[in-house]
Nucleic acid binder design. Structure first.
Lengths: 311, 311
DNA sequence: GAACGGCACAACCCGCGGTTGTGTCTCAGG
DNA sequence: CCTGAGACACAACCGCGGGTTGTGCCGTTC
């Protein structure tokens, strides 16, 4: 099964005859006949009944037709997704379960007509910012370290989300019963965050956090993914980790995990939207307007965040 | 852009190197290299950065990857739709705006996991029944004329929908003010139904109806489609047509059309579900159970319908 | 610095997919 | 009833796209 065959099938179905489809495709009737025969052979089903006055779709053909159309549409979309100019908006959200991804989903349900390509798993903010600068990425939700240095040549940012840090523990952990914690209380316990890759802006954030409040954060150990982490946390009464309030986490009911907010001060991880000021993509304008209209909804203005972030 | 290229792209993206992808695809590394180069050329974008230790997706590549996956999935679905055995349920509903299509949609929203291929535009019940008998169609919603003759060799039917006939007129028509009509009142006016193709079960139904109640139904004139018909009806004070209560019709507000129910007796068009008794498709079982659970919801047991339909 | 592992380029070659030519079937018209 | 037109299939041919083998280059590793 190949694209040419599918496209030929659609042309024949639309015109009702091989001849007409052939001239529309700038082919001979025999070529169209062969393509359809090949497609039918590869599918193992007859798609047309040949009549002296043209062809007619069989039931298999009628069933296949809408699939064929959606197939070429999907091909169109795929090609458009990388075509320079007039392409879908490309936004980086670090990970699909983060608060930034949730905001993007909210935006998408508010404007379902705007098509978005979500990018994840870029290594760090530096990579993402370089991509924004190069124009391969329209926007990224990232924490911005040292803004003066990184936001050069027309790359701008606004703070859009303060994700409050919470402690995630098993129900057997010594802090499990607390309804909230202060950073000072937290300093007495070890925090384990193997998913923080060294050299990223996440590592920088937690370094600052640990230094400022005297926490011990252990980022050692291989990162086997969030599910493995949750399982280990659930089975331990001494291990705990930090997560953002907006991070979507699901675990089996028997894990019985606790998410404990931190107060006095509240600690927030700062997400900014970063884009090139000369990027005229209409969907980007819509996204910025959407975020601007909600700019206070996801902010915790009195909470602590590192001094290097834009405000 | 061709399927092989897209599949190769996915294999390379998954393995992270041409070599490995090549052996997985039973190709040489050079062939993979050429395929990717050709794909990149046809898309006008670089998908991988070549490194000494393999390849890495560019941002374009990351964006393209999910599209590529959905593309091969769509291809899978398309091929499955006509593969004999283990295919989606194929149901014929005459036209997408009919009550039978609505019931099928209701069924689909009740069981979103069941995938259905909807077939329309089969010429008549005879064709549809032949397709059911041949096994190319799993079920059809049709009116059954002369059940004893047509429902031979294991093809069975149950009545699932009585679609009450209504008169559709402009607001300037002489009957426009009526809140309901009797067939006898209708007999004095001409009814125009150019969309009834001669030789179909629809024509048979309206022939019976006209003969029984003395109506004059005109099926002459070319059928330019439902929109054209509505426009003509809207502009005439003498033309009217008959439609089922469950037929979904939309028209511009200024048309100001009226749908007038018919009573004493109510006239219904009988839809039956027809299937082969030896068809073991699990989705068909579900559909039958669904319809059986609602078998009184769409019925008008006291209404008139032709004597040849199953009850 | 040599061996290794990875990708690209070059040359070759087979066969897929196109074209031309022809046969067959059906329907319309005289 | 015959004939011509129109439509699709089959056969033969052929060029080129896409595969293979062979080789080079480059960066990493020991």
């Amino acid at each position: 099964m190949d694209f040419d065959g599918v496209r030929t099938f659609i042309a024949v179905a639309d015109t009702g005859q091989f001849q007409e489809a052939a001239s529309r495709l700038s082919l001979t009737q025999q070529a169209v006949s062969k393509r359809i025969a090949a497609l039918e052979a590869s599918l193992g089903a007859r798609l047309f009944v040949r009549t002296p006055r043209g062809v007619q779709l069989t039931i298999d053909g009628q069933v296949f037709l809408p699939h064929a159309r959606s197939l070429v549409e999907a091909a169109e979309r795929a090609a458009d997704s990388v075509r320079p100019g007039r392409r879908r908006l490309r936004v980086d959200v670090v990970k699909p379960n983060l608060g930034s991804a949730r905001i993007l989903r909210d935006f998408h349900s508010a404007h379902p007509e705007i098509e978005i390509d979500v990018v994840t798993h870029l290594f760090d903010a530096k990579t993402a910012l370089a991509a924004v600068r190069a124009g391969t990425l329209d926007a990224t939700f990232r924490a911005i370290t040292r803004p003066a240095q990184q936001l050069t040549d027309g790359v701008v940012a606004t703070r859009v989300l303060d994700d409050a840090v919470e402690l995630l523990t098993s129900h057997t952990h010594r802090l499990a019963a607390a309804t909230s914690l202060t950073p000072a209380e937290l300093a007495k316990h070890k925090v384990w965050m193997p998913f923080i890759a060294p050299g990223t802006e996440w590592a920088a954030y937690y370094d600052e956090l640990a230094a400022r409040f005297g926490l011990t954060i252990d980022t050692l150990g291989p990162d086997f993914g969030i599910d493995a982490l949750l399982e280990v946390i659930a089975g331990s009464s001494s291990l705990a980790t930090l997560v953002g309030e907006h991070i979507r986490l699901v675990w089996p009911a028997e894990y019985n995990l606790r998410r404990i907010p931190i107060r006095n001060p509240m600690l927030v991880y700062p997400h900014s939207l970063v884009w090139r000021s000369d990027n005229a993509h209409p969907a980007l304008t819509k996204l910025r307007a959407y975020l601007d209209a909600r700019k206070d909804r996801y902010r915790h203005p009195k909470a602590w965040s590192p001094p290097w972030t834009d405000r």
